[in-house]
Amino acid sequence: MTTETGLASQAETARHRAPTRAMSTGRAGDRIFAGAARGSGITVLAIIAAIGVFLVWKAIPALQANEAGFLTSQEWNPNANPPKFGIAQLAFGTVMSSLLAMLMATPVAVGIALFIAFYSPRRVASGLGYVVDLLAAVPSIVYGLWGLAVLAPHMEGISAGLNSALGWIPLFGGDSPGKNSIFTASVVLAIMILPIISSISREVFLQVPRAHVEASLALGATRWEMIRMSVLPYGRSGVIGASMLGLGRAMGETIAVAMVLTYVPGINLHLLEDGGATFAANIANSFAEATENGRGALIASGLVLFVITLLVNMAARAVVARRKEFT
């Protein structure tokens, strides 16, 4: 196809062109760019370190001034003189609401994941996944607004029903089930963590080797038997890890809980009754009125929340990572 002149002219211009070797090899550019990349990575480490350091540093004066047991007291009066505050009630509310949320969300989330992975038609599966992900796109302030205006009135009846049926269990006991209870908060939290649990579970289920699925189907298994034989055992630790990530998310959730939950001092074991508090909601609610010492106390409680969520998240990731080793 090509003529000899093409090659000749190529050789011609080659002579006019600056020799290739004279071009910079970009060593300086490489050093600068690699340095910037590395520096950014180190910045991330520095931020995490700074979070720990500054929270501790700013919490110490308030903790020193505290006249109550920080871990044991149910009281939260850091602005008083002398300041008295403890995290017992906050820890109780946080753990109870998020555990309940996790227990409610996990089975539903697994159902959703199975539905999208194995029951829905292939063509619409990703679209349905997107619909569930939309739940995650709704900001927590909107969940709070909705929880307060729409969900809470409905929860009054549900809570009363649970109370009369299961009142013999202390957590569901009490005389006056309400609508601004830890239970209501946990329902809102369950909805909020549904998408994260279901999307991770879905990913895990979709990773089940095709061969396992086909092996059980070839044995004459029904769809449910296939799921029980091949999918659930394979995905179990992934689902556990996912629900723990959801737990961590629920523990740190602030605004929705702050809006739904009515603050009543003191631990109340009756979760259906109005009142309770969580670390995060307490910070949002008390911040505006906090004095200097009050801010320090809130920072101290935030530090505890940080450590708890950190431990839960790390445990969750360890569970998920262990699964990876087995496959």
Binding site: V44, I47, I48, A50, I51, F54, L55, W57, K58, L245, G248, R249, M251, G252, E253, T254, A280, I283, A284, R295, L298, I299, G302, L305, F306, T309, L310, V312, N313, M314
Partner: peptide, 16 residues
């Protein structure tokens, strides 16, 4: 770890 930081803690950090 950073992915799991509750948003209120990020706020507290900037405050501190």
């Amino acid at each position: 770890v950073m992915t799991g930081i509750p948003s209120i803690v990020a706020g507290l950090f900037v405050l501190a």
